[in-house]
């Protein structure tokens, strides 16, 4: 700092440590609770010395919450959303920046305006859509009398209804969430800073657009991709409303939703040690990703929100 202020420096560190403890308190406390047996965790106040039941509680939470199934669902959903979002928006941004075609601006505006339509404001109709993705095509099918065409081909009368349901499926958990205005915008901004000469040179050497994309644009985007991987993985893992809507089968539930079953209700045994063990397991993967890729995480967060 500018001048020597020993007292202020001391206070700075003191309050900083206090802040870190306050921020970390819920998790430290949950960590202690997860090591205690039931009779100790339901004592008031709960003892602050860790017990030896950690592995036992973890195991109980794991089997009772069916975490092996649910964590796999979460991994599939989070990585599906991450990969899907990044590839879909990178290709989209490539199309918008590196080609000149009539509907370019319309396409960009269409994608960008999804920023204003989070799933929270269109809960029911999106659910209906997922229940039958072909639903909107049915009137068209009827209007064109395609039924009679099919019947004629088949030789007897059959009723054809178009139906493709995404409920209780991994596709349903992932697909509706892979469109991303922020990712597309971020890649667009980045592509616009890539020197013109690279594209000129590639064209002169006779490279096709996709070769240019693969050999030049993709390697240049690596830091951006890493940053988005962190943000989108956390986003995908922590999804709540959408998985809650479209999964009813416990085998398809994600881990964050499934945790609800472990919270003791008023009449249950107060098995908070089990509930918190489950919570610790489920929150671990995104925390590991954020901490392991901290540098990219900060970049991703600051860039993608601009």
């Amino acid at each position: 700092m500018v001048e020597k202020t020993p007292i202020l420096d001391f206070l700075t560190y003191l309050f900083l440590i206090l802040g870190i403890v306050i921020v970390g308190f819920p998790i430290i406390y949950a960590g202690i609770a997860a090591t205690l047996p039931l009779e100790k965790v339901s004592m008031v106040p709960m003892p602050l010395i860790p017990g030896d039941q950690f592995l036992v509680n973890m195991k109980t939470a794991w089997t009772r919450g069916d975490l092996s199934t649910q964590l796999i669902n979460s991994v599939i959903m989070a990585s599906g959303i991450t990969i899907g979002k990044i590839s879909v928006s990178m290709l989209g941004a490539f199309s918008i920046v590196y080609f000149d075609y009539r509907f370019r601006t319309i396409a960009f505006v269409t994608v960008f305006c999804t920023l204003m339509l989070p799933v929270e404001v269109r809960i029911l109709p999106t659910y209906e859509m997922a229940a039958n993705v072909f639903g909107p095509l049915q009137p068209l099918w009827d209007a064109l009398h395609l039924n009679s065409v099919v019947s004629w081909f088949a030789g007897n009368d059959i009723e054809v209804a178009l139906n493709w349901s995404l409920l209780d499926s991994h596709t349903g958990l992932i697909l509706p969430l892979v469109a991303s205005a922020t990712c597309t915008f971020l890649f667009r901004q980045f592509f616009l800073t890539v020197p013109e000469e690279l594209c000129e040179a590639a064209k002169m050497d006779g490279a096709s657009p996709m070769t240019f994309f693969r050999k030049i644009l993709f390697p240049l985007s690596k830091t951006n991709i890493a940053a988005l991987v962190v943000i989108e993985f956390v986003y995908g893992w922590n999804q709540y409303l959408w998985p809650l809507l479209i999964t009813t089968n416990p085998k398809m539930q994600t881990a964050v939703i499934g945790l609800q079953n472990l919270i003791p209700l008023a009449d249950d045994l107060p098995e908070w040690n089990i509930a918190l063990s489950g919570a610790l397991i489920v929150m671990l993967p995104p925390i590991v990703v954020v901490l392991a890729m901290q540098k990219w995480f900060v970049k991703g967060l600051v860039d993608s929100e601009k």
């Binding site: 945790l259 919570a279 489920v282 954020v290």
Partner: peptide, 14 residues
């Protein structure tokens, strides 16, 4: 920075 990675629902449970 790590609480960023905690799901809102889990924060609720804690």
């Amino acid at each position: 920075v790590w609480p960023y990675a905690v799901a809102p629902a889990i924060s609720g449970i804690l």
